[in-house]
Amino acid sequence: MSEPSEGVNLNDLEVALRGLRPRPETLDREVLMYRAGRASARGWGWPLATLVSTALALGLSVALSIRPAPATAYVDVKSPQSDAVISSPSPPFTEDAEFGAWLRYIHLQEKVSLNGLDGLPPSFEAEEIPSSVDSLLQSMQ
């Protein structure tokens, strides 16, 4: 450690330092901590998300209110009497492979006639078996 130079009077320094008084506190610690926390959280993300959601909701509400009413669709509903073909409901034909195959073929014809080439299944076995004659007739109305 170097020796102090002769020109420096340490006592004077000590006296000068003792003469210093603490300044009154001008910084509010609570405010400082608050501002620091707020500054660290500032960003555009959440405010922007709020803005966008609010505007979208408003836009869709306006669109919904000015949308024209849907067109009325008339559906022919046959009376129950005209549907009755068989006096008793037909049993399912899980046990009759030939008849099931024939009805599967009828169902396939209906699908292809409605949907064209898109109605073709990959194989006959992939074609679903209608659960009963009645259900097949209903699906073809």
Partner: peptide, 14 residues
């Protein structure tokens, strides 16, 4: 921005 979104909503829903 809100007006812009409203217009976009109307166009999309038309």
């Amino acid at each position: 921005v809100a007006c812009g979104m409203i217009v976009a909503g109307v166009l999309l829903a038309a």
